[in-house]
Design a protein around this nucleic acid. Sequence first.
DNA 1: ACACGTTATGATCTAAAGGTCATATTGATT
DNA 2: AATCAATATGACCTTTAGATCATAACGTGT
Lengths: 83, 83
Amino acid sequence: MKHLVRTSKNLGHAIREARKAKNMTQKELASMSGVWQETISKIENGSGGTKLETLFDLIAALDLEITVTERSKGASDGLEDIF
Amino acid sequence: MKHLVRTSKNLGHAIREARKAKNMTQKELASMSGVWQETISKIENGSGGTKLETLFDLIAALDLEITVTERSKGASDGLEDIF
DNA sequence: ACACGTTATGATCTAAAGGTCATATTGATT
DNA sequence: AATCAATATGACCTTTAGATCATAACGTGT
């Protein structure tokens, strides 16, 4: 699993995929991360303007990690589709 | 350049490094990204709660990219220090 | 020490995120 | 189709990020 993320929509996708992959419901994720179910819903649907702290909470609860790198000119190696 | 980011502080570091690497001043980054210099200052210093949209603006202006992956259990391959 | 460029802080205002609750809508499952 | 779980939406309220401007603090070269 590897998602390139450049918009809130991408992000929402990545979060949802990861959650589903772990067979979690939004409500479960909510209680594990401290982020409200309603908020998770919005985020997964790409509602812009989420706060970083909220993101980090979800990322941690989902056992994901975020990396920042230079933009790779060519060869998007092993990346899944971007929506 | 590859930064693992799990907190706002990490993020700030990554941003600052990338900016310096490009010999840009906060003001220049500001005009390129549409994010205020004052805001950039706060972000680089790890002020929590930045909005995602703002982040994406900076990332784009700095030619960086964000990826979300599963947390790699072992071997942090080629990652720079995390602060 | 001075001057200039860079970065940090502080105040005010506005827009909007998220906590919170209630409810609507969608989606399975039988 | 009826039922129950899972999501989405909508309203309200509080809090806070970011725009904006002014200014302070910090760095660095001379």
